[in-house]
Design a protein around this nucleic acid. Sequence first.
DNA 1: ATTTGTCTACGAAATTCTTCGTAACCACAA
DNA 2: TTGTGGTTACGAAGAATTTCGTAGACAAAT
Lengths: 134, 134
Amino acid sequence: MKTNEIPQPTESELEILTVLWEQGPATVREVNDKLNERRTDPKEIGYTTTLKLLQIMFEKGLVTRNTDARTHIYSAAMAQTDVQRNLLQRLVDTAFQGSAMQMVMQALGDHDASTEELQEIKALIEKVEKLKSL
Amino acid sequence: MKTNEIPQPTESELEILTVLWEQGPATVREVNDKLNERRTDPKEIGYTTTLKLLQIMFEKGLVTRNTDARTHIYSAAMAQTDVQRNLLQRLVDTAFQGSAMQMVMQALGDHDASTEELQEIKALIEKVEKLKSL
DNA sequence: ATTTGTCTACGAAATTCTTCGTAACCACAA
DNA sequence: TTGTGGTTACGAAGAATTTCGTAGACAAAT
């Protein structure tokens, strides 16, 4: 069987997934509220808009849902890191000609990293180097 | 003055920009050919499709063009690294909750890096650390 | 001069994504 | 019973993106 065929979430779908990853399983109402809380744009997202998106996402397999009760409970169908991995891969392919390292270099150069983060990254590099030497 | 207000290129527009970055200034015909060469999808992109896209990109300011001759010459209006920076920033914001370092960590973990690349990254980190200590 | 091939411009269809209005349903309270 | 409020389903409008057909212009060859 095909293990993946994960449809790429759109921008809006990603926002919803983010809420589900942060909150865990949630109702449409909860997702919609969080969505509106976190946005800068004063314009509110309508309840049925969120509902519709969740229904579409269910059809795409991006979320699962429990319909036992009248009020359905939605959950993200995939781990956040898996989706991040896909999006990252796509960006590397489309914008960095497949060179993930070029992208890493750029990210390190552009963004401020705390001393702790730099340590973490160095530690990770050490680990990767050790693995390579086997 | 605002240095940017760069419209985000769409997926198709990014493909075209990539060709222009690789080839340098080019005609519609050249861009269209390269576009079709590099794609896996057997379905060809029509000439007028590329033409139209370039015209739209010109209006958005994504490309410049020289119309002295009958056959126009298009050029990317922005440096590749600037566009990469924007796309990267967007991905970090939408998929990594603003944590560029988390994204870097994931990229380092997922992708194979050569020993040389790892050295480069380490060197960059040293540089960043030196800067921080001032 | 006429044909042939290539070019630009432009409208519009096709596709995908986002948003919402409306209907139908159900539970609970008055 | 009769609302009142909250819920799902669904069609369809709206918006953004991608695609292409067609018309008109121009240049070079016949």
